[in-house]
Simulated scan of single mutants.
Amino acid sequence: MFISSIGNSFVWPLTTIYMHDQLHESLTMSGIVLLFYSGANVVGSYISGLLFDRHNPHWLLLGGTVIATAVIAFLIFFNGWPIYAVLLTAIGFFNGWIITLINSYATKISQDGRYVFSMLYFASNLGMVIGTTIVGPLYQYANGNVGPLFSITTAFYLILSGIALFCFNDVVKEPGTRTAQQGSRASSPLPRANLWICWTFFISLCVIWTMYEQWSSNLSVFMTEQGISMTKYSLLWTINGVLVVVSQLVLSWLSRWYNNPYLLVYIGTLTIGLSFVLLLAAKSYGWYVLAMIVLTIGEATVIPTMPAIVNSLSPVAVKGKYQGILNAYSSLGKAIGPLFGGLVIGAFSYRFLFIVCAGAIFLVELVILLVVLLKRPQTKRY
């Protein structure tokens, strides 16, 4: 997950600036390309999750990493318009494919699910922080030439392919054959209470990521309009990365004495909503720092916990399917977030956007509370 995240972080942050400055395309076209990238990510996540339960996951992961490596290698030499957009969309598909398969493999680990998914989230964020920190200076040093950057990305994906080849070849199989598992899936459908909670989480993650994306897209413009430099805006994401690392260590330590994953979901969702309330009151840079701290606490609490709960509510035969759906809905939220924010800002204002974001997340919090309160007593754990 760490290597995948670094490689991925060398790809998507370049898109807007490269398309605008080097390919001379509009910002609107850049947004459309990123929308296709995220949409392909959704499709890749869903399909790989379904296939994980029915076929050999080792070959699925190895095939996905090898093809992704080949596509990125093509970008070293073919990065003009429109081939860049086509290949970037393909990368989006295979990134969703790879991440879902890694998460699905994680469901096979006989260890506390909360710990496993927290460490995956930790590794992913650490890779993203390192990747996004490095890619800017490298792009500037290469004078806008993306060929050398995709060469480095190809090297990361070659490492990822090696890991898939040698470290995932021993599939952790549950008792019984695949045929038996498929029969079990047909005869023992997911309990209705489990379905209620799982689908509540899927839709909630879509809403949360839609609102969260305002931080990484539209907020940069809002802050610069307030006279705050881009350097200070970038520093917020450094704070975010450091806090994610620290919070995961703290939560792992606390889980030894108290482990209620649903409580973590309640706390995390509430604090993400509160971060937008703080944006409404922001009068200086210190307020933005405080809002980012609150946002990160919520993010680090709720984002890794929902996959762990879904894992515990999913039978062995369909764990990959439900991890795929979860990743697909997360990717959908990331895809529509910038467009949603832009439409709201264009029609109303930034302040109205922050009110909508806070209200939507508080509504999600209420729905989660009600569904879990009513359905949790009837759930079955796997």
Rank of each mutant, 00 (worst) to 15 (best):
Q181Y: 07
S314D: 06
Q181S: 12
L264W: 02
I17K: 12
V318Y: 06
D53C: 04
I293M: 10
N169S: 09
V302A: 02
M19V: 10
F222W: 08
Y329P: 01
V318Q: 03
V356C: 12
T89L: 09
L190G: 01
I272A: 01
I83R: 02
F202V: 05
Y322I: 08
L62R: 06
D53F: 03
T153Q: 13
V356D: 02
L370T: 14
W237C: 06
R185H: 11
Y258W: 11
I272Q: 09
A85S: 15
M128I: 15
Q181F: 07
N41G: 15
L326W: 11
S252C: 01
W287I: 00
P261S: 07
P338F: 03
S9Y: 12
L75H: 11
F122K: 05
T231A: 14
Y46A: 14
P315H: 09
V367R: 04
W199A: 13
T379K: 04
K319H: 08
K319C: 11
N79C: 02
L87I: 06
E299F: 15
G80Y: 01
Y382T: 04
G342D: 06
T296E: 02
W257D: 03
D21R: 10
K375L: 03
V42Y: 05
L61P: 08
S331H: 13
T177V: 03
V172G: 00
L353N: 02
